[in-house]
């Protein structure tokens, strides 16, 4: 479960203080096993909201509960373990450029301390799942934008996370690939993962109708 209560977020301003609120008065609950579209124009605050959800950013006010745990600035030591239960597809992929597709996907498993022998089948299977069999040894720069995005998706789901957060994951995919990716995400969701996907493609939402959360200028204007 993800629960926001009166959450606000300010980014640091260039003068060293805090800027205006990029997100204000966010109060909503996403139940376990839900699938939620996060909608809003560019600059509305979708990425910021997702960063709060996967603990890359802490709220400047309000209360945040992720996977049943209170997220608190004074309990940072507890955050890495919580992060490892969250899969993230970043808007800009964020692959490590000097690691092969295989090693990029294996990274979260290695960080979690999985043995080399036991992670190999999982990584191979995940790369096959996103249609990249045979490209295991390729470096990110040898892959197209869409292929890189699929590596990022495989990395996000390889740990079978309880919460999956994707920031415009179809941005670099053609419509066929986008539909295929959404099928993967809904499949994960059916297996019990709570999924949140940010997009500004109304087409995609129409093809996979589900609950949605709409942001405008950092505030929730619709949830349901």
């Amino acid at each position: 479960m993800v629960r926001f209560t009166e959450v606000g977020l300010r980014y640091p301003s260039p003068d060293g203080g805090l800027g205006p609120e990029a997100l204000s008065d966010l109060s909503f609950t996403l139940p376990d096993g839900s699938f939620t579209w996060l909608l809003g124009a560019s600059g509305a605050g979708k990425s910021s909201l997702l960063r709060l959800m996967h603990l890359a950013q802490l709220p400047t006010r309000g209360k945040l509960e992720v996977l049943g745990q209170q997220v608190r600035a004074d309990r940072r030591a507890a955050l890495p373990a919580l992060r490892r239960q969250i899969g993230v597809v970043f808007q800009d992929f964020r692959l490590l450029p000097y690691l092969s597709a295989f090693d990029n996907v294996a990274l979260p498993l290695r960080l979690a301390g999985r043995s080399e022998g036991s992670l190999r089948p999982d990584v191979t299977e995940m790369l096959r799942w996103v249609g990249l069999q045979g490209r295991e040894m390729s470096l990110p720069q040898q892959l197209s934008g869409g292929e890189q995005q699929r590596v990022a998706i495989a990395r996000a789901v390889v740990t079978r996370p309880a919460l999956l957060v994707a920031d415009e994951p179809t941005g670099n995919l053609d419509s066929h690939q986008a539909r295929r990716l959404l099928a993967l995400l809904t499949q994960m969701n059916r297996l019990g993962t709570t999924v949140v996907v940010a997009t500004h493609s109304e087409d995609l939402v129409a093809q996979f109708p589900s609950a949605s959360l709409r942001l405008e200028a950092g505030r929730v204007v619709h949830h349901g």
Partner: peptide, 14 residues
């Protein structure tokens, strides 16, 4: 790379 590892759940001591 540090920020990516951090976001994927690497600890400070790691």
């Amino acid at each position: 790379a540090i920020e990516i590892l951090h976001d994927l759940g690497a600890t400070q001591s790691d």
